[in-house]
Design a protein around this nucleic acid. Structure first.
Length: 431
RNA sequence: GUGGGUGUAGUUCAGUUGGUAGAGCCCCUGAUUGUGGUUCAGGUGGUCGCCGGUUCAAGCCCGGUCACCCACCCCA
């Protein structure tokens, strides 16, 4: 009985070609963050279960987590997300200069059935600002998000940043006549609106509203609102500070001019800890059905660790979902997809020249040039094939003749021309 | 956890009413013994996912099982 050649279901395994693409994506994310003054951090993969039990949501922790007892009998969990760890790190710092602007690309784990864009071990880019209650913080993270999309050269027509506010929606639902007990159910009903047929959804919502059709009609009006200046909405929300905040944030977005950001009362977000403005990033085409990114303001997370009240705002972005999005719109550059592993290949004409070839390889490498030396021992033609397959542009041949004369032949594989020269002349050419 | 689909060469797939397993690509060898790509000639490679049943005979029919994919739930 031999071992399986497959990794555990949903676990991450990357061949060099795939890894190169993933690396391109994460490095671009990193660059966009650094450009906005954010600093990178990291946290533990294994956390105490209690860290997530409090605020992340029962579904996430109860059914979709890798949790177990360690050898010390502690209930532990492979982190399903990063934000609670971040909140703890910030809470533990006595004299941290606030606000902090941090980002990270942690591996996270969720025990769910794998499907397109969803696996069990995944990279989730996180970017947060903690310690600012100013709406400028929301604006800043959305600006970074937009900057990320720009740096991938994604035109604003192919994605949409839908945003709303938890506080506003709770207030609005109350004013529509939804009781406190029913609010949660109505929220999740709203979340499902785009996934159901209109009639079926209306029935579903009616159920969530406790069968009260007057209330249900009000809720339908609410989520159908497209503009904040809607007279019905302004009448409903008169005197609401949450509504005022939404209007204010909308003005900020208008002022900056972010065409892809759209007020969408239907955006609710799943995680329990969000309190204020929430947003998500969606593909406007039908290819990638799930949100690529979700985020918002969370006011009470740091408070779990003591008396400090530090408000945060940030988002999580799935590296895999983003990569699928980029693939769909052909936004992964060919230079990344087809990158050669070396600048020059050293072909060894006969085995007695191996030491000389090694010496040559080392001295060219010292100049910062990427050199792949043949280790196959195959005949010369095969070595050229190998270089060609790798996409390496130059081949230098080393054999008894070269060892004797110190003159090397370098072939340019794209035009077939051969250059002859000393080691210094060869490296000069390659630089 | 629920529903649907697919399992045949390294890979993508074809395989007729049940009759001894096929193609493209890849890979290997040679034409070219110190120079790749193109071309040409040849070649390797299969427990048809697994177990059982029906049959003279099963890749094909039936039952079970496992794996993967897709959708739902949830979420990045």
């Amino acid at each position: 009985m031999s071992l399986s050649t497959k990794p555990l279901s949903g676990m991450r395994q990357r061949l060099p070609g795939e890894f190169r693409i993933e690396k391109f994506v994460t490095e671009t994310l990193c660059l966009s963050s650094v450009r906005a003054g954010f600093e990178e951090y990291d946290g533990p993969v294994i956390e105490p279960l209690g860290l997530f039990a409090a605020k992340s949501g029962s579904e996430l922790v109860g059914r979709q987590s890798y949790c177990f007892k360690d050898r010390g009998g502690r209930e532990v969990i492979l982190r399903p997300e990063m934000t609670p760890s971040l909140a703890r790190m910030v809470a533990a710092q006595g004299e941290l200069q606030l606000p902090v602007r941090w980002f990270s690309t942690p591996l996270c784990y969720r025990y769910e059935r794998p499907q397109r864009g969803r696996v069990r071990e995944f990279l989730q880019f996180n970017l947060d600002i903690l310690g600012s209650e100013n709406l400028a913080a929301e604006l800043e993270v959305i600006l970074v998000l937009q900057g990320i999309m720009k740096s991938f050269k994604a035109p604003s027509s192919i994605y949409r940043i839908g945003w709303s506010s938890r506080r506003f929606m709770s207030d609005a639902l109350a004013r529509c006549g939804v009781t406190k007990e029913l609010t949660g159910g109505v929220f999740s009903a709203i979340d499902k609106r785009d996934k159901m047929k209109a009639d079926a959804w209306a029935d579903f919502l009616l159920g969530a509203c406790g069968g009260n059709s007057v209330v249900a009609r009000q809720v339908i009006s609410l989520v159908s609102v497209e503009f904040l200046s809607d007279p019905w909405l302004m009448d409903l929300m008169s005197g609401s500070s949450a509504f005022q905040e939404v209007v204010e944030f909308n003005e900020l977005l208008q002022g900056v001019g972010i065409p892809s950001a759209v007020f969408s009362p239907g955006v609710v977000r799943g995680l329990d800890y969000y309190t204020g403005i929430v947003f998500e990033l969606m593909d406007t085409g039908g290819e990638n059905n799930r949100s690529l990114c979700g985020g918002g303001r969370y006011d009470n997370l740091v408070g779990l660790f003591g008396n400090k009240k530090i408000s945060g705002v940030g988002f999580g972005l799935g590296v895999l979902t983003l990569t699928l999005f980029l693939e769909t719109y052909k936004l992964i550059p060919d230079s990344v997809r087809e990158a050669a592993p070396a600048d020059v290949y050293i072909a060894v004409a006969s085995s007695d020249a191996t030491a000389a070839a090694g010496l040559l390889a080392a001295s060219i490498r010292d100049e910062g040039i990427r050199v792949m030396m043949d280790v196959s021992g195959k005949k010369l033609g095969k070595q050229f094939s190998e270089a060609s397959r790798y996409g390496i542009p130059f081949v230098v041949t080393v054999g008894p003749d070269e060892v004797e004369t110190g003159e090397y032949k370098m072939k340019n594989l794209s035009d077939g021309k051969i250059f002859t020269g000393s080691l210094a002349e060869i490296t000069g050419r390659l630089k």
